[in-house]
Amino acid sequence: MDLDLTRIAEAPSLIDPVFLTTPQFVDEQLCAALGRRVLVKIETLNPLRSFKGRGADLLAREFEPGTRLVCGSTGNFGQAIGYAAARHGLSAEVFVPAGISPVKLTRMASYGVRVHEAGDGRAKEAAREYAAAHEGSVFVEDGRHPRISEGAGTIGVELLAAGEIDTVVLPVGDGALITGVARWIKEHAPRTRIVGVCAKGAVSMINSWRAGRVMPTGRADTFAEGIAVSSPVPESVNRMRPLVDDMVVVDDAAMLAAMRTALATLGVLPEPAGAAGLAAIAVHDLPGEVLATVVTGANTTPAAMAAAS
């Protein structure tokens, strides 16, 4: 296991405080709507509207000023890399697929990111090629670098401060969140179960977790672009195998319903991927008396916002 517990413990002293100690609480209206006792953690009240800043900020500290960070992203990771690059004297080039959320494009540009549109399914490949061809550039990939997962692991540190949790339910995109959180929780609360959530139209991660090797699929078919993974990162799959107890899927309708539930009970409108944990609790009979989940992002597209309102 390449995720280091000491580095996770030290991370809160290094990561930009704007991303840390996010609200986590039990909301009685949410519990009534879900029919379960749920601790919810809100990771949307920061400059990025997502949890991604924790890992990106920790990673950016590894590079010399002037380094160009290059990545492929559907938006939230690209924002995080742009924010962290600006904070640490770096620059950022982000390759995106066509048709991503205009909200995310605008926010990336606001952090000084140079955005490049790549062909369908080629964002990461194009980013790798660009980094290899340009001196001073480094390709960074969400889910691959240990520092990204270790930064996300600080969410696990904060969750356990709330007390005993039977099951933690987390959306799974490239896997940095669930592996970082699970690494900490499995060490300090080994009886707590870790359950990952994938979109029904993007099952490559759940298939890979079950098989113990990367199982690519065709193009993802889901409006939850934050978890629309079709070719998993091998390092992430390897970490998930010993850390994750179960994986479930939710369809777009369940995520849309969860977005509406969050808005009605919490006053927060997640993006579809950000509501995947809530959706899983609503539709699956997950074990435990006390469950926890994370609202991971709120960069909602205008279309999804209109549908949820």
Score class of each variant (00 low, 15 high):
A292E: 06
R87C: 07
K124S: 15
R7L: 13
S110L: 09
G218Q: 02
A264I: 02
G153L: 07
G173R: 02
Y111F: 15
L243S: 02
P17K: 10
M205H: 04
E164K: 14
C71A: 15
A176N: 03
T21D: 15
A60C: 13
S50H: 10
V197A: 04
A264Y: 02
G288M: 09
D246K: 05
V172N: 01
V197E: 00
V248I: 00
A303I: 10
T22D: 06
R54P: 07
E289S: 13
N76D: 09
R36I: 08
A80I: 07
S230R: 01
E43D: 06
A33H: 10
P17E: 08
L58V: 10
V283L: 10
L34G: 04
S91F: 03
A298W: 06
P272Q: 08
W184N: 03
V169W: 01
S149T: 05
Q29M: 12
A182I: 04
F77T: 08
A60L: 10
G143M: 12
I227M: 03
A306H: 11
V283T: 15
G151R: 06
W209V: 01
G35T: 08
E164A: 15
M259R: 00
G201M: 01
R260W: 00
A282D: 14
A298I: 07
G288E: 06
E289K: 14
M108F: 11
A162F: 14
S110Y: 08
R114Q: 14
G156T: 13
R128Q: 14
E129G: 07
A228L: 01
K124D: 15
V249A: 15
G212F: 00
P216H: 00
I148F: 03
E187N: 13
A280L: 11
E150W: 01
L160W: 12
A176S: 14
G119N: 05
S91A: 07
P171A: 13
R107C: 09
D16T: 08
V290K: 05
T265Y: 05
V18S: 10
G173V: 04
A258Y: 05
